[in-house]
Design a protein around this nucleic acid. Structure first.
Lengths: 418, 418
DNA sequence: GCCCGCATAGCAAGCGCTTTCTACGGGTCA
DNA sequence: TGACCCGTAGAAAGCGCTTGCTATGCGGGC
């Protein structure tokens, strides 16, 4: 670990400053000098000290990706896509060439989500991408929103992918503390402290002055500067869960189903709610009567996993043996449902239809191939990645919505005619 | 971002040093002072500056987990397990409480693997866990080994999970030649490597002073302290791919199959080779004649994914229409094989048996339920995580092997009697 | 009653890098 | 020919935190 900038400088016969400049490539350095430095770097196998560099530059090349369940391909696909955008897209090769995109597994726990966010904030991450539905909780949601805004204020790009945009920080603008109960601007000294503590006054390159409550992180010093522009600097790539769910249910209705079970995900997830909303929208549009039964035909699982589907299907069958179709919270749940149904001696789709959501890779291979709703997860991830890096202009209003497409396959068919 | 240690110190009416000590909890601080500091931290919503802290302490709480394909549950499960071990196991809440475990997606590319390793080295990561089979390449392997050893020398714990241990750094690969004296430490317990690697000698904070001695078992302030001991400080949790594959083939042989196709993974992965070895071992043990056919009955896919299975199965069928069973590189590939077979009008297992490997969650839900070999991925990940943090003593010889268990299910049956 | 030692807290010196600001040589424009 | 400017490189001041060493206050042993 010993080899430092100074070592390289000595070897190349230049000053540390020059080496630094060669490495970051944002300052003119004569060709010969550059070559000499590069060779010294090579010979000494010099590797920049990230922390030191981050400290001095008050920025880092860490990008955090938060996922609910890393073992779930849904998140894996998104995360992989985001990560694929982190390379040095501009081929500059400079220090800002490559970001260290890291994925953090929250396990669906709001606390861990917050913990990771703190860790990321501690590292002064360049960007944070939160994937998957948000957890709606009267206590957690405001805490999360406030932490995200604090991050954004600190210059970290925040992107939400697969969840609804943050609610407006209602009331009094100008204060970074958006949440009512949240210690109102108590510590507003922040600005003052800064000024006072620093004898050097205006030396601070970025945050130093920042007049008023301008939420916008500093302008050009740091690469991500210009791109984000919406109020909070928090952009969203949301999924059309509602529309997709609606189309799926319409498909089932069109096939003739009238008693449609629904094995939903955890009630507090926005994804769960949105999909359910879409489902009921379709039901209601078809006939109010159907809507009345909806409640009874809905079972909430504790997670988006296989066993939730298995158990949910059993419960559904117990409550309403005559269901002719079951919609799952997602494809994984659908697989569990299929298993349960088969164990009960029911054939799919002859005796009962099953539909999933997401169109994960394995869905087309299920037997029978699963009818589902395709979400362009990869594309969404790519987009989120670009947004995070400021390589793409944020969508108007800061929110982009990606569409969901019905994939009608073999697991759904008209109900038996008996 | 403005609030610094100094701000907190000012607010609490103490010095920055004291605040630092309260936060890291490795130095006696009077109760009242501690409370005051903690309150100030609370009020100012202070968040440590990671880079600064890492720079000063020359250590960080980053732990990198490298995976080939983040969208593949195989890796997701391992990574999730590793990550689950990163919490503050001792509940100390101190700075060393929580590590930022991040997963990096190499996409199976050796270059990206190296790139990530550099990035991690740059961050002075506390540990690095490499998961999944290694890529065997005359150029890449030495480069990787050398980089890993450099990491280890720099104090980063390196754990290999699911791949064979690093070969001995045998003589004379002229290159930036890794560490001459290093190997000697093999028989040397603990201290050797550690002490030698640190020119600064007594500077290391470790056991340093720690007055008061809050009887914490873990190796001192800095985690990796004494735990790793094998020569290079690189430990391995390897999978018994060979044994598992062997048992799987034996199962098929016992059922009566004699023409067994094999859709393998990319040829250069150690996982591929090991599984194939196990397969052929079983074949050879049964009858040399079978071994002769093995070559012709093996198809290599370009990846461990569904389409490799689909295409591989088709190719196999083309070459040898009379195969009665097909073994897949892993479960995902098996699914692709099943799809192809079904598309060809073959029934599983009546017409042809199919077996996978890994026993991923969806395998039990496939139709028919997939016969496969179960690898305790979660356990292995947990173990790797503990090893990485030095929370668990390294296994003798630095290598632990986890066993594979045959899961005979419905996708395999005796061959048709025609 | 004095001195020693212990428990606490502060001082200040860095950690390795970035980034002004300054220095300097040579070419250019009057 | 002299004042300037441009292109380069170096000196040095931090970035915010950790930690060895030092200072202070107090209780107890002789």
């Amino acid at each position: 670990m010993a080899v430092t900038l100074a070592d390289v400088a000595a070897r190349a016969g230049v000053s540390a400053a020059t080496v630094s400049r060669v490495l970051s490539g944002n300052y003119p350095v004569a060709g010969g000098t550059r070559t000499r430095v590069l060779r010294a770097v090579e010979e000494l196998e010099y590797v920049v000290n990230g922390p030191a560099s981050a400290l001095a530059a008050s920025s880092s090349d860490l990008v955090g990706i938060l996922v609910h369940d890393i073992a779930d391909p849904f998140f894996g696909i998104i995360a992989g896509a985001v990560q694929s955008e982190m390379g040095d897209g501009d081929g500059s090769g400079g220090r800002n060439g490559r970001k260290l995109a890291v994925v953090c597994n929250t396990g669906g726990s709001p606390e861990r989500e917050l913990t990771y966010l703190t860790l990321l904030q501690r590292q002064r991450a360049a960007a944070v991408v939160l994937t998957g539905g948000a957890v709606e909780h009267p206590e957690h949601s405001p805490a999360l929103a406030s932490r995200l805004r604090r991050l954004a204020d600190g210059g970290t790009a925040v992107v939400l992918c697969g969840r609804p945009p943050l609610p407006e920080p209602d009331a009094a603008p100008g204060a970074p503390a958006p949440v009512p109960g949240q210690r109102a601007a108590t510590d507003e000294p922040a600005g003052g402290t800064e000024g006072g503590a620093r004898p050097g006054g205006g030396v601070r390159p970025d945050g130093g002055i920042r007049p008023g409550g301008s939420a916008r992180p500093e302008g050009g010093t740091r690469p991500d500067g210009g791109a984000r522009s919406e109020g909070s600097g928090i952009v969203t790539v949301s999924f059309d869960n509602k529309g997709g769910a609606r189309r799926l249910t319409e498909h089932l209705l069109a096939l003739g189903h009238r008693t449609i079970g629904y094995v939903a995900g955890p009630a507090e997830r926005t994804t769960t709610r949105d999909r359910l909303d879409g489902h009921r929208l379709a039901l209601g549009a078809h006939s109010p009567a159907l809507l009345e039964d909806a409640e009874r035909l809905t079972v909430h699982g504790g997670a988006y996993d296989r066993s939730a589907g298995y158990d949910g299907a059993l419960e559904l069958l117990r409550r309403t043996p005559r269901v002719t179709a079951v919609i799952a919270a997602n494809d994984t749940v659908a697989l569990g449902i299929c298993a349960a149904l088969r164990d009960q001696g029911l054939r799919i789709p002859e005796d009962i239809s099953v539909a999933g959501f997401d169109d994960l890779p394995f869905s087309a291979d299920a037997a029978p191939a699963l009818t589902t709703v395709r979400l362009p997860l990869h594309d969404a991830g790519v987009r989120a990645g670009r947004l995070a890096l400021g390589r793409q202009a944020p969508p108007p209003g800061g929110v982009a919505t990606v569409q969901a497409e019905l994939m009608a396959r073999a697991s759904t068919a008209p109900p038996r005619a008996d």
